Structure formats: structure tokens, C-alpha cells
Simulated scan of single mutants.
Amino acid sequence: MRAVITVIGKDMVGILAKVSNICAEQNANVIEVTQSVLQDMFAMIMLVDITGLTGSFTHLVDSMNELGGSLNLSIHVMHEDIFNTMHRI
């Protein structure tokens, strides 16, 4: 099972590290990352393997939402099944 994590917001030092740290803490393996900085805006898409999560998927989502709130970033976590279904329609 995999999930797609998107991050959008004002660029600052350590965004990738902080998101990756939450993934590591919850045993979500980062498979692929793409990121861009457009002027002062940061945009990232991350694909993670969630097969070995130590907690629930909801806990991962809540952790990312908490991080996003603390850094004023939009962080969205979507299960791959939902992502694929949305793009088939």
C-alpha cells in the first residue's frame, strides 16, 4: 500500500526533513520525492510505502496535519487507492 503526500506553502528551511522525519517515525518508507520552489513558494509531492506503518493511517494523516498547522503549510495525505480512483473518473 502506498500514499501520496503533497506539501504547498511558503518556502523555508527543513520542510522536506520535517515531513520525512514523520514518515520515518511511523515507518512509512519514502519511495519518491519531487519538489520545486517557485519564487518563494514550496511545492512537493512524495510517494510513500505505508505497508509497514507502526500506527494507523489516520495517525499519519493527523501528524502531517499537525505539522502543516504549525508551519502554516498545506499538507495533504491521500491513500493511493483514493488517488487512483479520483484520476480514473
Results as ranks from 00 to 15, higher is better:
residue 83 F to G: 04
residue 45 I to F: 05
residue 52 G to N: 14
residue 51 T to D: 13
residue 58 T to C: 12
residue 81 D to A: 03
residue 76 H to V: 08
residue 28 A to Y: 08
residue 55 G to L: 14
residue 14 G to C: 08
residue 86 M to S: 03
residue 41 M to T: 14
residue 52 G to T: 01
residue 43 A to F: 12
residue 78 M to S: 01
residue 13 V to M: 13
residue 4 V to P: 03
residue 89 I to Y: 13
residue 47 L to G: 05
residue 7 V to M: 05
residue 20 S to C: 12
residue 13 V to S: 13
residue 29 N to A: 10
residue 61 V to Y: 00
residue 31 I to P: 04
residue 73 L to N: 09
residue 28 A to L: 10
residue 68 G to R: 04
residue 23 C to W: 05
residue 3 A to K: 10
residue 71 L to C: 02
residue 26 Q to I: 02
residue 25 E to G: 03
residue 2 R to K: 12
residue 19 V to A: 05
residue 71 L to I: 01
residue 59 H to P: 02
residue 56 S to E: 06
residue 82 I to G: 03
residue 78 M to K: 05
residue 78 M to Y: 00
residue 39 Q to M: 09
residue 23 C to A: 11
residue 5 I to M: 07
residue 45 I to V: 13
residue 70 S to G: 05
residue 34 T to K: 12
residue 87 H to V: 06
residue 8 I to S: 03
residue 5 I to W: 11
residue 46 M to P: 04
residue 49 D to H: 04
residue 5 I to F: 10
residue 74 S to M: 00
residue 66 E to L: 15
residue 41 M to G: 00
residue 5 I to Q: 06
residue 19 V to D: 07
residue 76 H to E: 02
residue 84 N to W: 01
residue 84 N to R: 11
residue 16 L to H: 07
residue 53 L to W: 05
residue 35 Q to P: 08
residue 67 L to D: 04
residue 24 A to K: 15
residue 69 G to F: 14
residue 57 F to W: 08
residue 56 S to F: 00
residue 75 I to V: 04
residue 9 G to S: 08
residue 14 G to Y: 11
residue 84 N to K: 12
residue 82 I to A: 09
residue 61 V to C: 11
residue 18 K to D: 14
residue 21 N to H: 14
residue 13 V to D: 11
residue 19 V to R: 08
residue 81 D to W: 01
residue 34 T to N: 14
residue 84 N to L: 05
residue 68 G to C: 02
residue 12 M to G: 00
residue 79 H to D: 11
residue 48 V to S: 07
residue 71 L to N: 01
residue 52 G to K: 09
residue 16 L to C: 13
residue 54 T to I: 13
residue 83 F to T: 06
residue 24 A to S: 15
residue 19 V to G: 04
residue 39 Q to W: 00
residue 84 N to M: 03
residue 35 Q to H: 15
residue 20 S to R: 13
residue 89 I to C: 01
residue 5 I to R: 10
residue 67 L to V: 05
residue 25 E to R: 14
residue 10 K to Q: 11
residue 1 M to N: 08
residue 83 F to C: 02
residue 44 M to P: 10
residue 58 T to Q: 15
residue 53 L to F: 02
